[in-house]
């Protein structure tokens, strides 16, 4: 099995686990998690990010800030799979005796910050990146933001701050799934051209298919030897709900988990050979 195939296999496993934990809890942002599974799998299993499960607070680790905290099921499934905490905890997601719920929580091993209120994690990532620069440390800071999150003015405050302070150790990925809770972004307030916006904020911009590991690899492989002072933004075009047809690109499925028969159909679709 090739490197790429292994990552694809892992993505399938993580989607299954995300579905299971959301269905069991009867809640969770399933489609927001599905759009960023490949991105997270690449970071955690693709050797792009340095971390040590046994020493998860090791100061020399790279930091990962999940600014779109509603995608916590995807991150929790991965952290559980990597044994940051007993995997059994996934069964209690958002339930009595559970140690975590729908939005990301900083006290879960492997998690850096509490997020869920949007537009906040990205600035924290910029602050971390600045601290590493000041300390002459080579750690990288990875941050995943949502495209809907880009409506928050604080995203652009941090974007200016990061490029002004030459934070080329800050690698940000936008999960560009084109959807917010109620509608498509271009219907709400048009975000396009996102690429031009970030470029004009003096960021190094690349645009990729966020479900294609070859393209993710092209975007991430040089992050430790970049020859620019600009921070990097990867616009990852994705499908909200990727892997499950009836929740894909469907605004009204935001923040919901399928029940009963629909949960079975979702499971079946996830395990088709050609997802």
């Amino acid at each position: 099995m090739s490197f790429i195939q292994r990552l694809e296999q892992k993505s399938k496993q993580i989607r299954n686990e995300v579905l299971d934990l959301c269905v069991k809890a009867g809640t969770g942002h399933l489609n927001s998690s599905f759009s960023c599974v490949e991105i997270l799998v690449a970071l955690y299993y693709g050797n792009y990010m340095k971390f040590n499960v046994c020493k998860h607070t090791d100061p020399s680790r790279d930091k990962f800030i999940l600014s779109k905290g509603q995608a916590s099921p995807a991150l929790y499934a991965i952290l559980g799979d990597l044994n940051f905490f007993p995997k059994k905890e996934l069964d209690y997601f958002a339930q009595t005796n559970g140690i975590f719920g729908v939005h990301l929580q900083h006290d879960v091993p492997g998690v850096e910050i509490t997020s869920g209120s949007l537009g906040i994690g990205f600035g924290v990532a910029a602050g971390l990146a600045l601290a590493h620069k000041l300390n002459r440390e080579s750690n990288l800071v990875f941050c995943l933001i949502g495209d809907g999150e880009c409506y928050e003015g604080s995203i652009w405050e941090a974007a200016m701050f990061a490029s002004h302070n030459r934070l080329n150790n800050l690698i940000t990925i936008i999960d560009r799934n084109h959807l917010c809770a109620t509608d498509f972004t271009e219907n709400i307030i048009a975000l396009e051209s996102l690429r031009d916006k970030w470029k004009s904020f003096n960021w190094d911009v690349v645009e990729i298919d966020g479900h294609d590991f070859n393209e993710i690899d092209l975007a991430l492989k040089d992050v430790r030897c970049r020859k620019t002072q600009k921070p990097k933004i990867i616009i990852a075009n994705t499908i909200k709900g990727k892997g499950c047809s009836f929740i894909s690109n469907e605004p009204l499925w935001h923040g919901m988990a399928p029940k009963g028969e629909l949960a079975k159909i979702a499971k079946k679709e996830l395990n088709q050979e050609d997802i």
């Binding site: 600035g123 602050g127 604080s154 200016m160």
Partner: peptide, 20 residues
């Protein structure tokens, strides 16, 4: 940090998380 208080708090938090 300019007239950007929200980002001032978030970046301050990031710096503090790294020990500043």
């Amino acid at each position: 940090t300019g007239i950007a208080e929200q980002n001032t708090i978030t970046t301050a938090a990031g710096l503090a998380l790294a020990g500043k």
